[in-house]
Design a protein around this nucleic acid. Sequence first.
DNA 1: CGCTCCCTTTGACACAGATCAATGGCCCAA
DNA 2: TTGGGCCATTGATCTGTGTCAAAGGGAGCG
Lengths: 238, 238
Amino acid sequence: MRETGLCSEVSETAAKELAPISHHRRIPVGQVIQSEHLGLGWLAIIVSGVVKLVKAQKDGRLQIVGLQYASDFIGHPYASKSSLTAEATTPLELCCFSRTAFEKLLRNHPSLEQALYRRALHDLDTAREWMFLLGRKNAREKLASLLVSISTRINGQPSGDADTLALQFNLPLSRNEIADALGLTIETVSRELRNLKIAGAISTTGRRGISVLNPDLLQRLAEGDIDDTLAVSPLTGL
Amino acid sequence: MRETGLCSEVSETAAKELAPISHHRRIPVGQVIQSEHLGLGWLAIIVSGVVKLVKAQKDGRLQIVGLQYASDFIGHPYASKSSLTAEATTPLELCCFSRTAFEKLLRNHPSLEQALYRRALHDLDTAREWMFLLGRKNAREKLASLLVSISTRINGQPSGDADTLALQFNLPLSRNEIADALGLTIETVSRELRNLKIAGAISTTGRRGISVLNPDLLQRLAEGDIDDTLAVSPLTGL
DNA sequence: CGCTCCCTTTGACACAGATCAATGGCCCAA
DNA sequence: TTGGGCCATTGATCTGTGTCAAAGGGAGCG
């Protein structure tokens, strides 16, 4: 189940038919790719950048329920008009298709349909992993998990096996967005980020820069199998 | 996007081909329908009963990441061998298919494949709704949400539109399982259940019986748009 | 080059929910 | 019908994370 670009999962001929109905688009940070847009007329593949999927309630509470990276698909054919909002968290390059043209194409290329199905199953798995995080991990574990997850996805397509994690990268999310992804507040995010630094797992540069100093430690912190306070003990300071 | 039995989403002919490769099975409460079983050889449709999908970590923490009811599908073709465990929370009747036979059938019936795809999208939506609950709702809202969700699914196929919620039913989950579904402890579940009773939203009989006295109130408690403590004020007691 | 503005960090305190510890009562088996 | 085990309830206390408030510092703009 290698996670590669949709195009590479698809037959050559389908790819050729796809090209003429697609068009390229640039999106600035913060722009909402409206649910209406996606729901009604358009589907897209991310060429570069990161998109957050947000679920909101009228009272203003919100939760990021998914992050999509380069080569991921945005919007679903036969879409359930769910209350999801998609928004660019970094500058974005999209490759867009009209829904109707795409669905017509689908009918002629079962392999494309199957690729979408597998992708949906993968998203489902990711979502359930995240449910465990939200329900059963503490703040430190949540933050460490997010960093591991981002660092394995941020460069290239490989989807987070092994030690493929980037050791240096820019966060595609602000502190506020991190909080919204983890079900925390911005203050707690800040504090636990500091704890990860004290523990020697990471270091930061500026607002977005992250260096993973000890990938193994970070991974263990993410799963909580650490003698805990030892790793974050004051010793490090001296 | 009506949620009906898989069989009814499928052409007559496909259903006819499905029948001979299926076999019926009864499962007692608590039995694990091992990930291995499902992952390797079998797929199933639930005829009656409720199944919980559990994600666990070595340290013993666990989180219920999905509930499947009558007419739901268990196991995925082309399955990702995720660390999921499926377990019967009530006595179960399953209609089982061998994976290979089913996948062969799939190849000849695109409509079946599409039905599975839509189902996966629906599950994804459900999972994301649950992510919001886990990340952003408080204990009372979580419990009210779960009760609404169960009461709309427990009888028949209709998937939770409108006021189709059952006003009287038996919980398919123990207190412990409820806690594991909501990311809470059993004690908090017990206390908030009492609060819902005091608020006049529900009443309970025995360990499993639930009566929804005020569906509207329960719904509003689930979304937190209630002047809060008013609804659970001590007045009710006098 | 320096000045804002806004994002982020840090601190003090409050509170929802976890933890620890009994007690209660449903449900099954004999 | 009765006994007993286990699930659930209730209470007391503790703690992780939220809330409120203020100070610090990147990054873009003039």
